[in-house]
Amino acid sequence: MTLLPAAPRPAREYRQVAERVRTGGDQTAAAELNRISTEVRRSIITMIERAKLGHIGGDLSVTDILVTCFYAVLSVDPEQPDWERRDRFVLSKGHCAAALYSTLAHCGFFDTGELATFMAPLSALNGHPNKVKVPGVETNTGALGHGLPVATGCAVGAKLDGASWRTVVVMGDGELQEGSNWEAAMAASHQGLSNLTAVIDRNRLQQGARTEDTNRLEPLAERWHSFGWEVREVDGHDHLALRAALRGSDTGKPVVVIANTIKGKGVSFMEDRVEWHHKVPTSEQVEAALAELAR
């Protein structure tokens, strides 16, 4: 199977919305980013309902981060996914593929109709993203602790070329328990990768329990600081705050944005509840969720 084709009309709309978000003032930006995030959340619910599989809690916690990245920060062209000077975006927490696919489809990387095939037999939309099939995916993730090392390579490559494109990687908080991240954190700092931004979706829950009850991450900001990173902490559901935090490095160091989020954000009965890591909602719950997300 080859790469899914771009969807020209959504891609045009994406360019227009992204332009408004970037030039239309804070109020416009906030309104647009909110609107798109709600649409993406609604798609996620529908995709998981249909597939009867998925990681709904993390999808909903990372949605505002994804939408802010693609609409307000990254320089990408959905109709030219392999454009050499594009910014690189890596979703290290690959289990939140539904949120990524929904965002990419809204941007026009492929047709939104494709979302209905999520995890169906032979779909391009596997349970974890595959760059060979899905445009906008830079590396295949799913096994945790892989995104940051690959992102450091992208950033080193840009530096070698003296290129101005940047690399943004979004990680889960639980996955920070993987040692590979800390190998990469050391290397990124040593290599002076000021063109690299890591965002941590800090929802404080992992599959089985709270992160702090499983293998403590705190003091998280101090840990990153001690590894030589510029640390920013932000409300991960505040689009404008996220946008500001996603600006380039102020210090010449790699930047980590600790985005404090709520797992299951936007659906009251899923919020901050460990069981919604990968539980599938009943049809009544789907109806209730979509009703909340219509407001």
Binding site: P149, A151, G157, A184
Partner: peptide, 16 residues
Amino acid sequence: AEQELVGLAAGLANAG
């Protein structure tokens, strides 16, 4: 740091 070694190489390939 072998995990970083191979991951970084994959990223470099992505960068051309």
